[in-house]
Amino acid sequence: MTSLPQYDPPSVLEIVDLEFGYGRQPSVIESCRLSVASGEVHCVLGCSGGGKTTLLRLIAGLERSRGGTITIDGEVIEGPGVHQPPERRPVGIVFQDFALFPNRSVQGNVMFGMRGIPRRERAARAEEHLDRVGMLEFASRMPHTLSGGQQQRVAIARAMARQPRVMLLDESFSSLDTETRTEIRAETMTLLREARVATVMVTHDPAEAESVGDRVSWLDACCRRDDPDGKACIRD
């Protein structure tokens, strides 16, 4: 288990009073607060349908908030009158079902997010990222020929290749068998901490949250019970 940091480093991701609801329906998320520092892993626990995925989609810019602000490195990316589109946010996301592009090879998937650099360099960088997750030998394979764990690794490499400041993991390990899950989870966390990425991971499994999270908070239909020392909250 990772020990809690000794001091409060400046946070990369800062969410203040975030509010969200579909259409005219009542809010799903209300006065949500969250701050995640560089290299920190913040686990958000909650039952299914509790708005965990919605929170990640708000951070990624896939939904528009009703109120509150989301800041990354001091820049407001979501707030009153502000909505940076997802492609402009320094945010990576690993979907629950990985969402690899079925028409692109493993390497093609990883190269997809890199832009403005020559193709050869992109290919080389993609290989680096694949090597880091142990998938280099599968670079030319198509996604559907990979196992769930392998797809997971590619999805992480793809999200990391854009060098995001914030990484979002949406129940990303839940579809793997227990053994693979523990292994890939540990590798991923090491990778994310080394890259000093601020990570938000949602899960419904308290044991998983406890074992990987530097901090844990409980999302109870909304973030109202958000607690910086969340671990106590879980024991309730």
Partner: peptide, 15 residues
Amino acid sequence: QSRAALEASRTLGRG
């Protein structure tokens, strides 16, 4: 189509 694939593209920097 899986909407997630389209959203993945957006979060990977494509408009």
